[in-house]
Simulated scan of single mutants.
Amino acid sequence: MSGQNESPYYFVPNPSRHPVTASIGVFVMLGSLGLWINDVDWAPYTLFAGLLWLLFVLWHWFGDAISESETGMYGKRVDQSYRWSMSWFIFSEVMFFGAFFGALFYAREIAMHQLGSLDFKLIWPDFSAVWPNEGPAQLAGHFKRMVPWPVPTINTALLLTSGATLTVSHHALRDNHRKKAIVWLAATVALGFCFLIMQASEYIHAYNELNLTLASGVYGSTFFLLTGFHGFHVFLGGTMLTVVLVRLIRGHFTAEHHFAFEGAAWYWHFVDVVWLGLYVVVYWL
C-alpha cells in the first residue's frame, strides 16, 4: 500500500478470465448435483471436481486482488467500494438467517397452536401443542430435545472469547504491534476451530443418543438448519481469518490500511451475534 497517494482516482482492473472460469466450475457443480439427485453414479465425482476447480479459480482470483492491493493500486474509492460491498454482503446474511428464525417462529407460535386448536381435534385427537413437537403422526419417532448444557454453553463462551481476542488483535495492528496482532489472531482462529469440533460432537450425540435427526419433524429440521448453517459460517469466517493471519505473518497490511482484516472481523462479529440468538431461541426457549 506504499503507493496509496499515487494510485488513480479509481482503479479499473484489466479484463479477467476469472469470472468465466469460475462460472464453469459452478455450472459443473450444479449440473452434477442435478444428476446426483437422479441417481447417476458418476455425478458425485464430477461435483467434487467442479468444487475443486472453483476453489482453484478463487485462489488465483483473490491472489490477484491481494497483489493489486499490496502494489498500491487501490485508492480510497476502491476501499470505500469494498466496505460497502462487505456491508451489503453481511446484510444479505442477516436476511438469510432471518428467514430461518422466521420459520422457527412460525412453526412454534402459529402452526403448532393451530394444529392444537379445536378445529383439528377430529383429525389429530392426540396431538399436543407442546414444543418440541414430534408432529401429529409422529412419523420420525420419539426424540429428546437439545439442552443448553454443556456443549452449547461452552461454544457460547468460545465464540464470545474469540470476539474479544479478535478485537485485541485488531487494536494491536492499529497500534503497529504486528507480533501481538498475530498471536491474538491465531488464538481467534484456534477458538473457532474448537467451536466446530464441539459442534460436531454435539451432532454425533444428537444422532446416536437422542434420536434427533434432520428428519425429526419441524424441530429437527429447524435445529439442524439453523445450527448447521451457522457452523458453515463459522468455517467460512475462520477461513477468512486464516488467510488474514497468513498475510499478517508475511508482512501484509499497515496500521492505516488493512480492510481485509476489518472485513473478516465484521463477518466474525456477525457470526457471534447470530450464535447468541441461536443460543437463546433454540436451546433455552
Rank of each mutant, 00 (worst) to 15 (best):
M1P: 13
S2R: 15
S2M: 14
E6I: 11
V12F: 01
P13M: 10
N14G: 09
P19Y: 14
T21F: 15
A22I: 04
N38P: 11
Y45S: 15
T46M: 14
T46Q: 05
L55D: 11
W59S: 15
I66Y: 04
E68K: 10
E70C: 03
T71P: 12
G72C: 12
M73K: 11
G75K: 02
V78Q: 03
Q80I: 07
Y82A: 09
R83G: 04
R83T: 05
W84C: 10
F96D: 08
G98Q: 01
A99M: 00
A99L: 01
F105R: 06
E109R: 14
H113N: 04
H113I: 03
G116Q: 00
L118H: 11
D119G: 15
F120E: 09
D126K: 05
F127G: 07
S128G: 03
A129E: 03
W131K: 02
P136V: 06
A140E: 00
H142V: 06
P148Q: 06
P150A: 11
V151K: 14
T156I: 01
L159G: 09
S162L: 09
G163A: 04
T167G: 10
V168M: 00
H171Q: 06
R174L: 12
R174V: 14
H177L: 10
R178V: 08
K180H: 02
V183Y: 01
W184I: 00
W184R: 05
L185M: 12
A186D: 06
T188Y: 00
T188K: 00
A190L: 15
C194H: 13
Q199N: 04
Q199E: 04
A200H: 14
A200E: 12
E202N: 06
Y207Q: 08
E209W: 13
E209D: 05
T222V: 15
L225W: 12
F229T: 05
G231T: 09
G231F: 05
G231C: 12
L236A: 15
L241W: 08
V244I: 12
L245M: 09
R247A: 13
L248R: 03
G251P: 05
H257C: 10
A260N: 07
E262W: 07
A264N: 03
W268L: 14
H269Q: 06
H269P: 01
H269G: 04
W275P: 01
L276Y: 00
L278S: 02
Y279E: 00
V282H: 04
Y283N: 09
W284D: 08
L285A: 15
L285G: 14
